[in-house]
Amino acid sequence: MMKYYSHDEVLLQQSLDSLMQLSESLANEGQIALSGVVWRLYCSLLQLQQVNVADNGKSLELKTQS
């Protein structure tokens, strides 16, 4: 089974920025546990910036075991 992944770097950065703001806002409001969840999501998605996409810059082929 083949799966394909593609991402828009601008949209990814905007999403990361929003998650960071949300995490900080929640922490300032004293909602530390929820802020931590958002922070972990931010950290997980941050790794997508390191993904090397195919030569055409549009997609990455992911192979999965079925």
Rank of each mutant, 00 (worst) to 15 (best):
K63P: 04
I32Y: 10
D55A: 15
L60M: 11
K63C: 07
D17L: 03
M20R: 15
G36E: 06
T64N: 09
V10R: 13
D55W: 15
E9K: 14
Q50H: 05
M2Y: 11
L19V: 00
K63M: 13
N52V: 10
G30Y: 09
Q50S: 10
V37D: 09
A33T: 06
V37K: 08
Y5Q: 08
L22E: 07
L16R: 01
D8N: 15
A27Y: 09
S59R: 13
L48W: 04
A27W: 08
Q21I: 05
Q47H: 06
S23V: 01
S35F: 03
S23K: 10
Q21K: 13
S15R: 11
L16K: 01
L60E: 13
H7E: 15
K63N: 11
R40E: 05
M2T: 09
L60R: 15
T64D: 12
Q21C: 08
E29K: 13
M1G: 12
V53F: 14
D17W: 00
E61L: 15
W39N: 10
K58R: 15
L41T: 05
Y42C: 01
C43H: 02
A33C: 06
E61W: 08
Y5S: 04
H7M: 13
Q21N: 15
L16D: 02
M20A: 15
E9M: 13
Q21F: 10
S6Y: 12
Y42E: 02
L48N: 06
S25N: 04
S18N: 12
L62P: 03
S6P: 05
N56E: 07
L12Y: 00
S66I: 11
G30P: 05
L62G: 03
S59P: 03
V37E: 11
E29T: 01
L16N: 01
M20D: 11
E29N: 08
D8E: 13
D17R: 02
K58A: 13
Q49H: 04
M1N: 12
L60D: 05
L16V: 00
L45G: 00
L34K: 08
L34D: 14
Q50C: 01
N56P: 02
L11Q: 12
V38I: 08
L19T: 03
V37F: 10
Y5G: 02
V37R: 06
Q49Y: 01
Y4A: 05
Q31H: 12
H7P: 05
